[in-house]
Design a protein around this nucleic acid. Structure first.
Lengths: 261, 261
DNA sequence: GCCGTCTACTCGTCTAGAGGAGTTGCTCTA
DNA sequence: TAGAGCAACTCCTCTAGACGAGTAGACGGC
């Protein structure tokens, strides 16, 4: 086999065999033997090396995959995940000075870091607000909202899905209801309508993706998602937008500045 | 079997059997048939119901577990995860007004929300800063730092581990090097030493936990962690502390306020 | 040289068993 | 009645096969 210096099993250890094998491979991945992108020995090679059944090897590989350390490619082999380029979300990303340059935050930031941004699956509809959304927007339940959903991609790879909810009485009849919301995005439109933005609240959770999210974001097994809910407030204290986004956690580092005063 | 109304398999679908079974169970968990905390039918019950081999059932259950939806308990059964109480981290949690009340952020917040906070595994040492830490602290590599590591628990359940790095020339000979850092925590001590805190930068990642983290945080399978790195800056722009924390993602919702100006 | 086929190798799915170990509750005995 | 012991049930680990489908390189025919 492609010898990467894997040790043998410890016959006295009571740690299950498949976990021991996973440990060995994890170890090798930390060293030079299995650098990111390299190929892990095949199932049959590992079977021969350790003298165990195929299922035992598969359990070990499965474990590593669920930890997000490897990806299996049908017909090719199992490979050590290489960390993809990440996008840093800074806490000033919605500052007015960026908005005034006429580009939505995502487009501007991605281009700056040398990526090719795109947006697809744009869908716009008018719906009754769910209890959750109504509460965040400070509306009575069942009030009508404009729903804008879309998917963001970098170099044609999906990284984020987003759904925005804007009270219908605000967005109705404006460019916000069009797929192309115009220069600076919907926040620029809201300001033109007289809703001067004051601040945003962001709520962040992390969890494993749902089935649909795995598909929409082409997520590898073992990669969690950020679930971020942002509420935009105008300077009169009124909530004017709620944005619910799900992001591939291996494509993002979130970054915030907190006051100490 | 405890009939929860599971449908049969779709013989024409090309979706693998174990995924179909997982789909059925996931569906049942969304409805009243399998509420949080309830017991999923046993492997042998599912074998009988679907007429498939045990491994196929186990694959399905394994999938749900890796999604963080269920927990298996040896000898008892598989149970639907119930969402634990979460702790909300607000972006003003390090505001001076809190610090001046003499309690560290974690203790104050947890008590406020009705939990019983505790801290254990406190270890303090002096080490050479790693390249990463040195860079964040703005120190030459290899400079000496005081390392404070500890684990936070709520109602005796671990939720977070944290390691702080403070330049030795600042912390040396102060209470910061003692396990009990005194009222208001190390941030209060830093201010007493004349480092008036100006702001914090927080960097957030999400990923699956390492082996040690699973143990330290008693994490169930399929639960990712937040990895948060906070840097504290004094008002002269100097970085005075770096804190590296790993948090169980099912115990936290992070919350930040962003300026729009 | 180019293209299609064949083959060997990869991982994916599934079957049908084995023994082990933790938990629970019943039964039988003292 | 209290306790020990046992049986039945749970999930965990592992074996030894089967067939399927995707990939890539060798090889031969055109």
């Amino acid at each position: 086999m492609t010898d990467i210096g894997l040790p043998g099993l410890d016959p006295v250890s009571d740690r299950p065999v498949f976990k021991q094998i996973a440990d060995h491979l994890r170890e090798a991945m930390n060293g030079p033997a299995l650098p990111p992108g390299s190929k892990v020995p095949s199932e049959s090679q590992l079977m021969t090396h350790y003298g165990v059944a195929r299922m035992t090897i598969r359990n070990a590989l499965q474990l590593l995959q669920s930890e997000g350390l490897t990806v299996a490619e049908h017909g090719k082999g199992v490979f050590v995940r290489s960390r993809p380029q990440v996008r840093r979300l800074a806490s000033d990303r919605f500052a007015r000075r960026h908005r005034e340059q006429g580009k939505a935050a995502f487009i501007a930031e991605t281009e700056e870091s040398g990526g090719r941004p795109s947006v697809d699956s744009i869908q716009i509809s008018e719906q009754e607000a769910s209890a959750e959304v109504a509460k965040r927007l400070g509306l009575p339940a069942g009030q009508s909202v404009i729903v804008r959903s879309r998917r963001y991609l970098i170099n044609d790879h999906p990284v984020e899905t987003a759904v925005s909810y804007i009270p219908a009485h605000i967005a109705q009849g404006t460019q916000i209801t069009h797929p192309n919301s115009g220069p600076g995005g919907i926040y620029a439109r809201l300001e033109e309508l007289g809703y001067r933005l004051d601040h945003f609240d962001e709520e962040i959770r992390s969890r494993m993706p749902l089935r649909d999210e795995v598909k929409a974001l082409k997520l590898a097994p073992g990669i969690p998602v950020f679930h971020l809910i942002r509420t935009a407030y105008a300077d009169d204290g009124q909530a004017v937008e709620v944005c619910d986004t799900v992001m591939s956690s291996d494509a993002y580092v979130l970054s915030y500045q907190l006051p100490a005063r």
